[in-house]
Simulated scan of single mutants.
Amino acid sequence: MNTTERAHLIPLREALRADEVALHHRVLTIWEEAGLPEEISALRVFDVIAWMDGTGERSDWGR
């Protein structure tokens, strides 16, 4: 994957690192509240939340 193909990941990386990694901690809290196994990564949890938000299948998680 070249730099252009990964450009969309830069804002995600910045968001996950901002405010003393507040977003990352929130995603981990959601992971814990959902009772997910260790095999499910925080990034996957974020991915599902973003997908649900983008498809209109909104969740109250994180709100």
Rank of each mutant, 00 (worst) to 15 (best):
V48T: 09
I30K: 03
R13F: 07
R58G: 02
E33T: 06
D19I: 00
W61D: 02
L43D: 14
A50Y: 01
P11Y: 13
N2D: 15
M1L: 03
A7K: 10
T55R: 14
N2H: 11
I49Q: 14
E57D: 15
L23S: 04
D19V: 00
R63D: 12
V45S: 04
P37W: 03
R13E: 13
R17D: 12
E14P: 00
R58A: 05
N2G: 15
L16K: 11
L43N: 09
R6I: 02
H24T: 09
S59A: 04
I30P: 02
G35L: 05
G35P: 02
W31K: 15
S41P: 01
A18S: 15
R13G: 07
V48R: 09
I30G: 02
L23R: 06
I49G: 08
D47K: 10
A22K: 13
E5G: 10
P11W: 11
E20C: 04
T29Y: 06
S41I: 03
E14L: 11
L23D: 01
A42D: 12
D19A: 06
E39L: 03
F46M: 15
E5P: 00
H24N: 08
I30F: 05
W51T: 05
W51M: 11
L23N: 01
L12M: 11
E5D: 13
L28H: 07
R63P: 06
T29L: 10
